[in-house]
Structure formats: structure tokens, C-alpha cells
Design a protein around this nucleic acid. Sequence first.
DNA 1: ACCTGAACACCGTTCAAGT
DNA 2: ACCTGAACACCGTTCAAGT
Lengths: 223, 223
Amino acid sequence: MPESRPHPAPPRKRAPRGTLDRVRVLLAATAIMAEEGTEAVTIRRIADELDVRPMALYTYFRSKDEVLAGIYTRLLAEIDLPVADEGPDGIRAVMHAYYELLIEHAALARIHLAADHYGQGDLRVSEKLHGFLLARGLDDRAATELVATLVRFTIGSALLRPLPNLPEEDPQAWRNSQRDTQVVSASDRSPSPAPGTGLPDFTGDEFFEHGLDLILAGVPPRK
Amino acid sequence: MPESRPHPAPPRKRAPRGTLDRVRVLLAATAIMAEEGTEAVTIRRIADELDVRPMALYTYFRSKDEVLAGIYTRLLAEIDLPVADEGPDGIRAVMHAYYELLIEHAALARIHLAADHYGQGDLRVSEKLHGFLLARGLDDRAATELVATLVRFTIGSALLRPLPNLPEEDPQAWRNSQRDTQVVSASDRSPSPAPGTGLPDFTGDEFFEHGLDLILAGVPPRK
DNA sequence: ACCTGAACACCGTTCAAGT
DNA sequence: ACCTGAACACCGTTCAAGT
């Protein structure tokens, strides 16, 4: 009778029936992301964390993408938006909360914005802004347009926060792209921006602030 | 003498020494992208196209990422920017050229903006705008801020062009995220935007136009 | 210097099968 | 309904070796 074989690798016992649900999966995934970064979040890694086989997750999510969307939506649902348009400026408070979330979870935000399923969370921000603007006297159409502009500007700002690479940073790479685009066409091609010239030293965050000023310039203050 | 064996799969002959260079790789990659989509662009697929083994590409590019950056930079270098601020509005012409490129190559743009190596091409757009604004009488600082805002807004607009998914489109998915974010915290959580309400029927392109109007409102016309 | 062979260390996902 | 085993069809990239 072959009892008690030495150490034949403890055969992981089958997970009981109720171990999983959507939220548990999202919590595990979020934990992995926080500790090991966004690219460590894989179906297989999440399954490991939950002591389950990879395929088990597919009972609750159609794809890895849906998992990432879930994480993002939860993060957005968690941010504190001001209840009313109060303090120095409720609009700017909302914008800052949104911007800072995108910055803090930059890697996830990039993946998520690159895919096409923002929605839930972003709409919460939009509706909040819309309400504040109506209360300040804008009509529905004007409010809608302004909100759309603010959201688009904020997303662009978050993506560009690590400012465009200038030649000093990687001269080799810079020269490479110069050559790559050399003979594209013989027409008027402005000879690549002069290295030292151009942008004064603004940070990405400063650009965000100035852009807000600009876009909100015509908006009446709260009453 | 074992001559002329039937059909032992023609052993692909070794590629001669000069077959590759950066531009040839980029052209092949661009062709694949045009015909089979962005996700078909892999190191292995490009190598196939060039009748070369995958590793050969690494003599010219450090990574797949660098290849994609190269494609993007070439595309941006190819767009026709107005030479001078003429026609009804040179600024808007530049913005439209930029926006349309991002839309036309949406998949690539998303990947590229998600990574951190815009630079070359985007700077060409920025410098052009900057010049036009100086000619209209703005000082350097004001021009820089306005350009930064325009670029960020345009990038956000391109990413959001396929508008946020509304509940009608995939009710199941919508309900799922509702439940996912249910118990996040007990505090004041606005009860998810009312489905039918909200945005009038604007298209992504219309939002872009209105945003441009808004941001450019205070800019003096060209002289 | 430039190109190749083979392998490493992974992926997400399908399919069929267990419970 | 929910969880698993095994396999499919890929990836990008490293390392060592040829020419």
C-alpha cells in the first residue's frame, strides 16, 4: 500500500463552488496592480492570487479587457466629487479630482482610454459638471459642449503629462527619427523644430492649470 | 548521390547583407498595418514580409515599440500643414489635419499615445501653431499655453470620438459595472446618471468643432 | 556588422470534461 | 452553474553562433 509518499507536491485541492464573484476578482486584480504594477495584472496572475485556475475567471468576465474596465470603473466610482458647487470653485475641484486619478493610475488609464470602454465612471464626472454649470446659468447645450471640452482636455493633459521627449534626452533616438522621415516627400517640410527653442519650462501640471483657466474664462462664477 | 529530393520545402536562402534598414522596415510595417490592421503588426510578421528572420530587425530597432513609434512619426511627418496662416483660418486647418490623422490611424495613435514617445511629429504641429499665434500678436507665453491646450484637447477628442458607451448598447455590461461599484463606500454616491437623460445627440466630431470654437474664442483673427 | 537558430518565458483564450 | 486540464496559437526578446 503506497501510503504517504514523501513530498509529491501538495495537489492543490479543487476550489469550492462559491469562491469567486466579479467583485472578488476585481479586488484581487486591484491589489496586484497596486503592488506589482499594471502589467503584472494577467488572467493567470489573478487566478493564482485567488487560488483558482485561469479559466474560472471566464465565468464572470468575458475577457481580460473587461476585468481592466472593471478596475478602472471602480477607481472612478471611488473618487470624492464635491456634492455641491462650493468652496472657491466646484468645477475646478471636479476637474482636479479627475485629473489626479488619471495621473495616479496612469498605466491603467492609458490602457483603458486606448480601448473604447470608458463610460460609467467618466459619465459620473460629466453629469456632475453639467449640473454645476446649469446652476451657474448656462443652458443645456452650452453646458454639454463645455463639459465635453473639459473632459477631452483633461484626458489629453493626463496622457501628455510626461512631456514630449526632447532631443537632449535621447539624441540617438532623435537622430533616428530625423532620418526615418527624411525622404518622405520633397515638398516644404519645416526642418524639424530647433532643439533649444520652443516651449518655456512648463511642467505638465502647469499646462493643465493654464488650460483650465483658458477654457473656463467665460464661465460665470457660482451664485 | 542523393540529388533532387522531391519537395523538401525550399530552404529559404540567407538574406544578403544589405537587405534591411530602418526605413525599409517601417515601410513594410506600414503596409501590413494598412492591409491587415494595427494588431497584425508584429516583429515576426514584419520579418516574414521582408523575407528575413525576426531577430534581424533588432539590428535596427531596439524594440517593437520603437518600430511603432517610427510608423507614427512618419505618418505625422507626411501630413500637409498649411505653410502660412491663410485661408479662412490657418489655426483651424492645422488642428483639423492633426485630428484627422489621429482618427484615421486611431489604433496606432492609441498605442502611441499610451506609450510615452510622441515628440518629433507632435512638436512639428505645435511649432506651426505657435508661429501662427505669434503672428497674430500673442506673446510667447500666451501662445505656448494656448498651443498646449489645443493639442491636449485634440488628443482627448480623438480618443473619445467613439462616444462613451450608453446603457442601450450593452445593458448586461452596464448592469455589471453598476453592481461592481455598488458597495465601494457608503457615502454619498450619485446614483449613476439617468440613462435617457444627459447628452443631446452630438457626434464626436461635433464636440471637436465646438471645443475649438470655445478654446479659440479669444484669439484675434489673422491680420 | 548583420543575419540566423533555437529557446525562454510568457500570453489570452477555446474546447471538452469533470462535479 | 461553476471550476478544471490540456492544448492552441501565438507573442517579444535573449543568447550564442554563424558569415
